[in-house]
């Protein structure tokens, strides 16, 4: 697999670097692969690089779909 985990941008550093945080753990990563970022954005981090930005709207949508998937059998039975 490619071990990667979402972390939040805390500080933009020079030279395409940034400090990101994950529940109190802070790490310096390269943002060269994702372009413009703002403090507060979430990025997926893999081997010290940000791979992609997390789309907050789509994340909400996924959670709604998950809730729906969890609720479906009740509807089916009703």
């Amino acid at each position: 697999m490619c071990l990667a985990i979402p972390a939040q941008v805390r500080e933009i550093l020079p030279d395409g670097m940034a400090r990101v945080g994950l529940d109190g753990v802070v790490k310096e990563i390269s943002t060269a692969l994702v372009g413009d970022l703002a403090v507060g954005d979430y990025v997926i981090v893999h081997v010290g690089f940000a791979l992609s930005k997390i789309d907050a709207v789509e994340a909400e949508r996924t959670l709604a779909l998950l809730a729906e998937a969890a609720g479906a059998p009740a509807e089916a039975m009703a």
Partner: peptide, 23 residues
């Protein structure tokens, strides 16, 4: 951990498992 913990909810998992079993 935001964008992580939401996707590790055991209760929700069991509910989705029930949907899978039903379908």
């Amino acid at each position: 951990m935001k964008h992580v913990d939401e996707y590790r909810d055991g209760k929700l998992a069991r509910a989705i498992a029930a949907t899978i079993a039903a379908e």
